[in-house]
Design a protein around this nucleic acid. Structure first.
Lengths: 352, 352
DNA sequence: CCGCCCTCTGTGAGCGCTAACAATACCCGG
DNA sequence: CCGGGTATTGTTAGCGCTCACAGAGGGCGG
């Protein structure tokens, strides 16, 4: 314990040189042991290991990063992480990164403006990340991102396919087609739609898929209502729909409301409540379907038909893509991974 | 653009020396400008700024960290972040840290074992974090944490108050007392309880508050059921309770099931479904209350009485505590911040 | 008009580590 | 018993930055 007689300065973390001294070797040998270099005699290796443990030595990551020019750090820019989708994605992403030996640090955006995004990215890059994943499915933000010309690889999640940035996404349009088709097949003359905020790419794609399906089936396309992903906004939209069903005479055309595709499960919950309060049974009077398959959806009243997205897979795919670009040194702005969603049919859309 | 004639080696990020050369000053002056040192002539400062912009220079954080011995990095160890509470906490925490100029990187645990926790912390500290926040409200994990004797400050979130580690938490017991009291006041002879996993500290505290309230009121204490936080487990517990209400003759004592306090909102959703399926109206036949106040709770059928926790405040408080210890250099293992929860009464517990 | 202080700028060292090379020891066939 | 490899270890030179100190001007009181 009284290893180094002269080492009683202010307690400072032990350095490689300290370990070397204790083990009776050079600092370079310690380095070799640490990085598992083959050409180290077994006995020496053991000696060094012992010294490391005795001193509680830990390699200084800053010094290492300085000379190797690798920080092994990745950044994630995310929007409101209390939403189920983004937070699940981040979970999968973080796990995948850790498995590959990278650390990830995240910045969450308060607002979805271009300057906020730029700030976030600046912070991340000031901090030395080698690449970033941007989970900001927001039209303006993605546009701003494309113009930034960053000096490191970027991968977007749900960033749309129009811009030349590598990206991973779930096929939102397909998901919307699946639900809408399902509703149509159940015999509904048309399907109403409560959309997400228009500046969200996912919302746009879902609306798009819904509309296309109706048109292809020759069904009339009712005007979509809009929400902001929250249950409350869904509730309001639901009340609006209730008004169209029970109001004195249909306003405008007499397109019946018998099926509603809601752009996410949280809003669907609000819609459900609005119908319940109006005494309109689901699925008796109206069939409802959502999107996302949050863990609660199965237990709604009634259980919600919805579209399941594999968020963890999205996270993993994005990290893999990022690391791949990083380690190959090749930036592939056209790379795309599209993950297929799956229709989950439950009681809210089936007469049973 | 053809600034440095000889600088056409492999494109490498510009260094402070490059900036200095372009601005016609020494690298030290550049450093001074960057760190806002007062003693720099205004014209010089402008010159340097221009050079910085022209070159797109960014200070190398590793080099800086190496010499200053400050990484300005904080770590967070979290459990399953798809749960509403933890992810909201992380959100608040990350924001607070960023405001203070720190970056945070997180590691999520797959399992709640002591080795997993140790691994996570090792990774974080290998990466040079200056302190960590541990959001692992798990009995075993917190115990393991206490024994680790880490060389940097640690703050726990919901880690209980028995161990000498600084911590922030919501007064879970108070929350449980509030709901249970509310139910008792509504005239119920007793209140049943669907608890969380027994090894979660929060679950224990909630059960504790529930039991104490019943005992103090002289009410009989029914055996608590247990769930695992998921809606499904709540559903199962709900079925069990339904069995006790409608079963042929009460098994054991005939303690009536007229009120249930469920340890979180997700499980309460499951319980709600079980009663609904059994044709038992809520709150007509049974009053139900949850805990957390997730955004969906207000839109359940019926809207759920619950206890609101200010997760963002928890995150902020924990970061403030951590940074405080960091910058003062004083570790305060006895420091505690307790945040009061609030009862939110909704339709699931009021006869209206 | 000199010396002192204050403002501004430059020089040198070194943070803890890895990479490249140099050095040493050891083994083998001839 | 010697030359040339191979395994193992040491030496040196930075990575890009900040800190401590040294130097160079300029203003001003005496």
């Amino acid at each position: 314990m009284s290893q180094t007689a002269r080492n009683d300065q202010t307690r400072r973390a032990p350095t490689m040189a300290d370990v070397a001294q204790v083990a009776g070797v050079s600092h370079q040998t310690v380095s070799r042991v640490l990085s598992n270099h083959p050409n180290v005699r077994e006995s020496t290796r053991a000696e060094v290991q012992r010294a490391i443990e005795q001193l509680g030595y830990r390699r200084n990551s800053s010094a290492r990063a300085l000379v190797t020019r690798r920080t092994l750090a990745l950044g994630v820019v995310a929007c409101n992480p209390t939403l189920f989708g983004p937070s699940s994605t981040m979970f999968g992403l973080e796990e995948a990164a850790r498995d590959e030996g990278y650390m990830v640090s995240s910045v969450t955006l308060r607002t979805y403006t271009a300057p906020a995004l730029k700030d976030a990215i600046d912070q991340l890059s000031d901090w030395g990340v080698e690449g970033i994943v941007v989970i900001v499915p927001h039209r303006a933000a993605v546009g701003a991102l494309a113009e930034l010309k960053l000096p490191f690889p970027v991968v977007t999640v749900e960033g749309g396919h129009s811009l030349p940035i590598a990206g991973v996404s779930v096929d939102q349009e397909l998901g919307a087609r699946l639900v809408t088709g399902h509703l149509l097949e159940a015999g509904h003359r048309t399907v109403w739609h409560v959309a997400g905020p228009p500046d969200w790419l996912e919302a746009g794609a879902r609306t798009q898929g819904w509309r296309a399906t109706l048109e292809e089936a020759g069904a009339e396309v009712p005007p979509p209502l809009a929400g902001d992903w929250t249950p409350l906004s869904g509730y309001r939209a639901g009340q609006e729909l209730v008004g169209r069903m029970t109001g004195v005479g249909a306003r405008g055309g007499a397109l019946p409301v018998t099926a509603v595709f809601v752009a996410n499960d949280q809003m669907a919950l609000g819609v459900l409540r609005a119908f319940r309060e109006a005494g309109l049974s689901v699925p008796g009077k109206v069939a409802i379907a959502g999107f996302d398959d949050i863990p609660e959806a199965e237990f709604f009243a009634p259980p919600l038909t919805t579209v399941r997205q594999d968020f963890a897979a999205v996270g993993q795919a994005s990290i893999r893509m990022l690391i791949d670009q990083l380690e190959s040194g090749v930036v592939r702005p056209d790379e795309r991974v599209v993950i297929e969603p799956r229709l989950i049919v439950r009681g809210s859309s089936t007469p049973t």
